[in-house]
Amino acid sequence: VTVHVNRYTYHFDNPEEAEKFAREMAKRLNMTVEIHGNTLKVE
């Protein structure tokens, strides 16, 4: 599972951890999480 935050890319083996990380980053940056299959984008 890949998480994109701005120009950074993070890889996770565990989808739940990836989503938790993405949501935490989105909250911190006041952004939203978009899910595209195995890719989560924080925008």
Rank of each mutant, 00 (worst) to 15 (best):
Y8E: 14
A22T: 01
N6Q: 09
E43R: 14
V1D: 01
N6K: 08
I35D: 03
N14S: 11
V42F: 03
P15D: 05
N38W: 01
L29C: 15
M31A: 14
N6H: 13
N38C: 12
V5P: 02
E34Y: 13
E17L: 11
R7G: 15
M31Y: 06
G37W: 03
D13Y: 06
K20F: 09
V1A: 08
R28L: 13
L29N: 05
E19K: 08
R28H: 09
V33M: 05
I35W: 14
M31S: 10
R7W: 11
Y10D: 01
F12Y: 02
T2C: 13
Y10V: 06
F12S: 00
E34N: 14
N14G: 06
V42G: 05
D13T: 11
R28W: 09
A26S: 05
V33E: 01
V3C: 02
P15A: 13
N6T: 06
A22V: 04
N38Q: 05
F21S: 00
R28Q: 10
N30F: 04
R23A: 08
A18F: 02
N14W: 04
A26V: 02
N6L: 14
V1E: 01
D13V: 08
F21W: 06
D13P: 07
K20I: 13
R23F: 12
E24I: 10
A26C: 04
E34W: 06
R28K: 13
E34A: 14
N6W: 12
V3M: 01
E24A: 12
L40G: 06
F12C: 05
E24P: 00
D13L: 08
L40A: 05
T32I: 14
H4Y: 04
T39V: 14
N14M: 06
Y10F: 13
A22K: 01
T32L: 08
T32R: 12
E16W: 12
T32H: 11
N14A: 06
R7P: 05
A18E: 00
K27H: 10
F21T: 00
K41V: 15
N14L: 07
K41D: 07
T39Y: 10
E16N: 09
F12H: 00
E16P: 05
N6D: 13
H36V: 13
M31K: 04
H36N: 13
E43L: 15
E43I: 15
M31R: 04
A26Q: 03
N30M: 06
R28S: 07
E17S: 08
T9M: 12
E34P: 01
V1S: 05
H4I: 15
E24R: 11
E19G: 05
E19M: 15
H11W: 14
H36K: 10
E34D: 06
E17K: 07
V3A: 01
E19S: 06
F12L: 00
D13S: 10
T32P: 04
Y8P: 01
N6G: 15
A26E: 04
T2N: 06
M31W: 05
V1C: 14
E17R: 06
V42D: 06
A26P: 01
I35R: 14
M31L: 12
V1P: 03
E24K: 12
V5C: 13
R7S: 13
I35H: 09
T2A: 05
A18R: 00
A18V: 01
N14Q: 06
H36C: 14
T32Q: 10
K20P: 01
T39H: 13
I35F: 12
Y8H: 14
L29V: 03
N30Q: 07
A22P: 00
Y8V: 13
K41P: 05
R28I: 12
L29M: 08
E19V: 09
N6P: 03
V42A: 03
G37L: 06
I35L: 06
E19H: 13
A22W: 02
L29G: 06
V42N: 04
M25L: 13
E24M: 13
A26N: 02
T39S: 12
E16A: 11
K41M: 13
V3Q: 01
V33F: 04
T39D: 11
H4F: 04
V33R: 00
L40I: 15
Y10C: 09
F21L: 01
E16I: 12
V3D: 01
V1F: 15
H11F: 13
N14P: 00
R7Q: 14
K20L: 11
V42W: 03
R23S: 08
V1M: 11
P15H: 14
E34F: 13
E34T: 15
A26T: 03
I35V: 13
N14R: 05
V1Q: 03
E17D: 13
E34I: 15
E17A: 11
T9Y: 11
N30P: 01
K27I: 10
